[in-house]
Amino acid sequence: MANPDLGQRDLQAAATSHRGDRIFNRVVTGAAFTALLVLAGIAVFLGIQVIPAFQSQGLSFLTSTGWDINTDPPTAGIFGMLYGSLLIAGIGLVIGTPVALLLSIFLVFIAPPRVSRILTNFIDLMAAIPSVILGLWAFYILNSQAQVWQELLNQYLGWIPIFQNDSGNFQGTPFIAGFVLAIMMIPIVTSVTREVLGRTPPELINASEALGCSMWTMLRYVALPYGRGGIVGGIMLGLGRALGETVAVFFVLKIVFDTNWYHVIESGGGSVATLIVSRFGEVSGAFELNLLLAAGFFLFLGTLIVNVIANLIVTRTGRLQK
């Protein structure tokens, strides 16, 4: 296929021969590349910070947990924070996803159109609540409620290791941080899944109705498989949001430099974003600042990886059901 036939004519040039189109093309392409450039700029800026951090801390910056800047030599490790970010985002996912799914099923298949429209608006408004407000609300109002829930969880399900609590302190737990994240994820995940489920082709719904299937089986075998890719994408989008969330978590999570592996209703946990914001105001100098920015790089990397995985899942879900 090396040389095109001499008789072939250049259709591409003809297709873009309109001058306005050409200019518009360039503007759009330029804008797209600008976005890429900004992304690359951030990555490089943060990436550079990693070098001195590793020079002073070595790999233990990633594998240990601690933040002792005033000792000599100063030691810092963000493992507990990285893990904590994943843990609370995971808790948010576990609480938020079922709610978002049920909510969108209700909006699409059950609620009368009017109710559905109104409710959708409210849920979208939820996404617009600034996270600092949500954080304040969680701190002043949710905290004491959540204390009761956690005590009940501990009382009745305490035999499950994750619901153990030895200290009797139920404040600033990963659970409540995850709960706040769930509240932030629900509108995002709901709006995507609602959109996706709403696009279930009516012919397929017809088909399943005519085969005598219940709402539940229709959802299970028709609507959910049809929207699977989009739904997973929506969940990942929510996860990305949760990983990066800073202020709201800052208000409710007690940061401790000790990895809280799975005691989700035990006081104290970690999160990279919260570490950064909590130290940033009183940073001791260039050295600590560099460590914080290096931590930021790994947060950035984490969210990037989540998004890549999301894309992979979305593209791989076209598979057939047997």
Binding site: P201, E203, L204, A207, S208, L211, Y226, Q321, K322
Partner: peptide
């Protein structure tokens, strides 16, 4: 309106599956 995410065989049997 066959179910696009199912195979030909899966479609034929889908009525059994969906209605239990």
């Amino acid at each position: 309106n066959p179910f696009p995410s199912m195979t030909i065989r899966g479609n034929v049997l889908s009525g059994l599956k969906l209605s239990g």
